[in-house]
């Protein structure tokens, strides 16, 4: 099996996988939601340290 052939085969195997569009959209939503949550948490932390009402 030539190396190119192997590479082609392997790439063909991998290319077989495809995330369905619906799942991809769901993934994007999850990512953006998590990103929002992450930013919100960061802002909260920043506020806590900067704004600084220490109890």
């Amino acid at each position: 099996m030539a190396q190119d052939t192997f590479a082609d085969l392997y790439r063909s195997l991998i290319a077989y996988y495809r995330l369905p569009d619906e799942q991809a959209a769901w993934q994007l939503k999850q990512i953006l939601d998590r990103l929002d949550a992450l930013h919100a948490r960061n802002r909260k932390n920043e506020t806590g340290t900067e704004g600084g009402v220490l109890h």
Partner: peptide, 18 residues
């Protein structure tokens, strides 16, 4: 960000699957 995702998500998916 969504546009970046649309352009690349299949590649990332396949990479992860690899």
């Amino acid at each position: 960000m969504a546009a970046l995702y649309d352009c690349t998500h299949q590649e990332v998916y396949r990479t992860a699957h690899a």
